[in-house]
Design a protein around this nucleic acid. Sequence first.
DNA 1: AACAACGTGTGAAAGTAATCACGAGGGTCA
DNA 2: TGACCCTCGTGATTACTTTCACACGTTGTT
Lengths: 212, 212
Amino acid sequence: MTTTTIPEVVVLRLPLYVRVLAALEGRGQGVVSSQELGTLLHATPAQIRKDLSYFGRFGKQGRGYQVSNLLKELRHIMGIDREWSVVLVGVGQLGSAILTYGGFAPQGFNILAAFDADPSKHGAAIGNVLVQDIAQIKSEAQRLGVHIGIVAVPVSHCQRVVDLLVDCGIRAILNYAPYQPTTPPGVWVRDIDPVVALQSMTYHLKTAEDQW
Amino acid sequence: MTTTTIPEVVVLRLPLYVRVLAALEGRGQGVVSSQELGTLLHATPAQIRKDLSYFGRFGKQGRGYQVSNLLKELRHIMGIDREWSVVLVGVGQLGSAILTYGGFAPQGFNILAAFDADPSKHGAAIGNVLVQDIAQIKSEAQRLGVHIGIVAVPVSHCQRVVDLLVDCGIRAILNYAPYQPTTPPGVWVRDIDPVVALQSMTYHLKTAEDQW
DNA sequence: AACAACGTGTGAAAGTAATCACGAGGGTCA
DNA sequence: TGACCCTCGTGATTACTTTCACACGTTGTT
């Protein structure tokens, strides 16, 4: 068995591949070339081919890739051909919005429970999810077999909550707090911070202005 | 004048530097070393020093960096020592949540107007912002001197809305739709897609499982 | 059956980014 | 003053990513 470690940049691109392949399948396209995928993904055809080659040989010379087959393969490789159990911590404005957001479930990410430290929120149901006492999280996470945690708490609580999730056996965390928590090896964190995204663009806006 | 082009990866890290420096200033710390910054940012001290060296010589040998000074410098370099005018397109569930989110204004990003194609939404005020007809966007954007656009529309409308924003003279776009729009050179886009973030983690979860 | 057009998979080359390692300066204290 | 410790800034090195370019298989055509 030839186990090459996949570069992380490639892993980060895989979901985008799946996204456009799903769109192509939805519109009934049967075959796609690396050239066309490259256009749709704003990447070079060579990069598409090299990325895919890390996982196998899915294409056919002279033809391209069979959309439905490649999509199936990639979904399996990424582990998104199954359901994942998710818990959310922090039911403030942001947390509530996440609970009512309809984009996770269709992709197999099921938010099964929500937790907050504020007793006044306990017992409420937001978007079909019951808000529970944060003290219950460990037993609930184990009972539900949770894989993924979403953190939507203030910066001041972020590290503590992340530690707690890790203690619950969770090894993948989607973090909405504007803070990079420290985690032990083997735990994956993705940060979502729109302000950071905006700030990295203002650098370019300013630089473009200064140009003249 | 020595104008080296700054690597984009460095630009993407600058906001994180500002974030931790602001935290250090808030807690009253006067001086910080690249070593300590590295710990807080999960980066090596060498990387911190090299990144900062693209913009100038802010440190003092034997001491480190003066927190307030470095913060001031970086804020200026990134263009976040001023206010930026923002418009939002798409006042659905997500768009409404963005309008009521309190995290943008304190960082100098002021959402001045919101637009939607649905007439039933026009005239509503959400989080102090008036929802207007999308047909008004060009005149309003010019009147308000808008710099940045936030896109919170369905995938099917994303490209059209982005084209419209570009036509309004906007050159920085924060895109919440799960689709990578095409833009002319000189226009900057940052995509925010929590599902993509989750999917890149399930790859690792699955791989860790398969290990044994 | 031969040929042309197409497009994959992949080593090699080129281009970027991260890290190393060290000279030089600053601070502290006896 | 001088010895010692600290930490920056940076050229050199190493590691990682992307792109190039071509052999080879597939499809369609005459």
